[in-house]
Design a protein around this nucleic acid. Structure first.
Length: 420
RNA sequence: GCCCGGAUGGCCCAGUGGUUACGGCGCGAGGUUGCUAACCUCGUUUCCCUUGUGGAUUCCCAGGUUCGAAUCCUGGUCCGGGCGCCA
C-alpha cells in the first residue's frame, strides 16, 4: 500500500498514476473521505480513553490515601458504555479504510507509458525470430509422446498435464540450470512453503489477484502460492532487517498454482497456460537507494539465462495499464513463438518499491528511524512456459528437438528424438 | 491427535491487577578523554491532533472479566519437550 502522507498530501499525484493505469481516480477521494471520518472518530475515542485512564489513576491514588472512591467508580463505570459504541464504529470504519487503502495500486514510475498493453514499448530484441511453424508446441509435444493433456483434463480438469520421459528431465534441467546460475551470483537458494496464511499472502498481492489467481485450501486457513514471490516476500514478514543483510537476494524454486479465472478460452492447448507449473524466481529486499541497481541486476540475470538457452526473445516495458498493482515498473521478457509469429510472455521483472513491505511490515534501521525496505522480483525461468518456447524454436527438420548446450550436463542428452 | 512448558521493544532478558514496562546489548545523534578505543548524555512500537512538558496505542493473535490487564479467564497461532499415529 501507499504512504498515507502521500495520499493525504499529494492526492493529485496518486490520481495521475491511476489515470495512466486507466483506473478510476475516484478511489482516492473515496479513501480520503473515509480516512477523514476515521480521524475524527479516532480523536473522540482517544479523548474518552484519556478520560478513562485519568479516572483510573485517580481511583488508584484515592485508594492509597484511604479516601472514598465510590463517586469516582460511579463515573468510571459510565465510560466503557460510551466507549464501546464509538470503538465499534471506529473499528468498522477502520476496516473499511484499510480495505480501500490497500486497493490503491502502486504509483507507476515516470518512464512507464500511459494506457493499456497496446502502449507496451519494446526495449530490445535478442536472437533472430524468423522461423515459421504450422504446429504449435502442444501438437509437437503430443506427437513426440512427451505430454498427455487429454488424460490430465479427464482426471484433473482443463489446464493440467502429464509430462513424460525426456520432458520430465528437461523440466528438471531448466530448474537446475537456473538455480546453479543464480547460486554462482551469490543468491540464497530457497525452497519455500507452497501454502501461506491469508494475512501473509495479503502482504504480497492485491484483492484482484486473490480473486482470480489464488486457490484456497478448504480444510485450513491456507492458500496455495501463485508464485514463489509470495513466499519470498513472506520470508521476512513482520521483521526488521539489519543494514548489513541488505540487499538480500533470494532465488527460489517452487510450483505455482493459478486459477486462471480471468482467462477463459485463452491458450487452452498444451502447457502454455496451466493451473500448475514450476518456476525459479528471483527476489530482492533492498535499500530504497539501491533498488534500481538491483532491478537492473535481476533483469540482466534473466536476460543472460535466456541468451544461454538461445531462444529469440525481447524485453518490453509494460504500459501502466498492464503493470501489476504492486509494481511501479515492470519489464516483461517475451519469447518468440514461430507457430504464432508472435512474442509471448516468459517472465517479468518488477520493482515494487515499499508497496509490499508496507503491507508486510518489513523494515530496516536507517539513522534513528525504521524505514520500509524495497522489494523486487523477476522470473528466472518458468519452466513449462520455457519448454513451450524451446520446442517451437529448436524443432528440427526430422521432427526431433535440439537441447540448448547449457542444459546438456543436466539432461544427459542433446536431442529429443522422434521415436516413441 | 493428547499432555506439559514457553512467546515481553532490532536482539537478550526482568516484571503475579494500579502513576511513565526494569535492565543489558545493538543502532542513531551529540559530547568528553590518555583515540586499533573507552566513557557520558539523549533517542530508538505505532497512530492521532489543537505540534507539546499533548493524547491514544503497544508485552504472539482474537475475545472476555475489571474503574483499571504484560499480569486473571476462554479460544487460537507458533516454538520447545513427552506420548500416540505415520511415508
Amino acid at each position: 500500500m501507499l504512504d498515507i502522507n502521500l495520499l493525504r498530501g499529494k492526492p493529485e499525484e496518486v490520481k495521475k498514476s491511476l489515470k495512466k493505469r486507466l483506473l478510476p481516480e475516484i478511489i482516492v477521494d473515496n479513501f480520503l473521505k473515509i480516512d477523514n471520518k476515521w480521524r475524527i472518530l479516532k480523536v473522540e475515542v482517544d479523548n474518552l480513553r484519556a478520560r478513562r485512564n485519568k479516572i483510573s489513576q485517580e481511583i488508584n491514588l484515592a485508594k492509597k490515601s484511604g479516601k472514598s472512591i465510590n463517586s469516582l467508580i460511579k463515573e468510571a463505570k459510565e465510560i466503557p458504555k460510551k466507549l464501546l459504541e464509538k470503538e465499534k464504529s471506529l473499528e468498522d470504519i477502520g476496516r473499511k479504510r484499510l480495505e480501500l487503502w490497500r486497493e490503491i495500486p502502486n504509483i507507476v514510475n515516470d518512464d512507464v507509458p500511459a494506457g493499456d498493453e497496446a502502449k507496451n514499448k519494446v526495449i530490445k530484441k535478442y536472437g533472430v525470430a524468423r522461423k515459421k511453424l504450422k504446429e504449435g508446441h502442444a501438437k509437437l509435444l503430443e506427437n513426440l509422446g512427451l505430454i498427455n493433456t487429454k488424460k490430465a483434463s479427464e482426471v484433473a480438469g482443463s489446464r493440467f498435464y502429464y509430462l513424460k520421459n525426456e520432458l520430465v528431465k528437461l523440466n528438471l534441467s531448466l530448474i537446475n540450470f537456473a538455480l546453479d546460475f543464480l547460486r554462482k551470483k551469490d543468491f540464497n537458494l530457497i525452497q519455500p512453503p507452497y501454502m501461506l496464511k491469508k494475512q501473509v499472502l495479503e502482504g504480497a498481492v492485491t484483492l484482484d489477484t486473490f480473486k482470480d489467481a489464488i486457490y484456497k485450501v478448504e480444510t485450513e486457513d491456507l492458500y496455495l502460492i501463485g508464485t514463489a514471490e509470495h513466499a519470498l516476500n513472506a520470508y521476512k514478514f513482520n521483521e526488521v532487517l539489519s543494514q548489513k543483510e541488505l540487499p538480500l537476494r533470494l532465488a527460489a524454486i517452487s510450483p505455482c498454482f493459478r486459477r486462471e479465472a480471468g482467462a477463459h478460452g485463452k491458450d487452452t492447448k498444451g502447457i502454455f497456460r496451466t493451473h500448475q507449473f514450476e518456476k525459479v524466481e528471483q527476489f530482492v529486499f533492498s535499500k530504497p537507494e539501491d533498488s534500481w541497481k538491483e532491478f537492473d541486476l535481476i533483469l540482466k540475470n534473466s536476460v543472460e539465462m535466456y541468451k544461454k538457452l538461445g531462444i529469440p526473445f525481447r524485453t518490453v516495458l509494460l504500459a501502466a495499464g498492464d503493470t501489476s498493482k504492486t509494481s511501479t515498473k515492470t519489464i516483461d521478457l517475451e519469447g518468440y513463438y514461430p507457430s504464432q509469429g508472435e512474442y509471448r510472455e516468459l517472465g517479468s521483472c518488477s520493482n515494487c518499491l515499499d508497496y509490499q513491505a508496507r503491507r508486510s511490515n518489513i523494515k530496516f534501521p536507517d539513522k534513528n528511524e525504521l524505514k520500509f525496505v524495497y522489494t523486487l522480483n523477476s522470473t528466472a525461468i518458468a519452466t513449462e512456459r520455457m519448454i513451450t518456447c524451446l520446442v517451437e524454436n529448436f524443432l528440427q527438420k526430422d521432427g526431433s528437438i535440439k537441447i540448448p548446450s547449457c542444459l546438456w550436463k543436466y539432461t544427459g542428452f542433446k536431442v529429443i528424438k522422434t521415436e516413441k
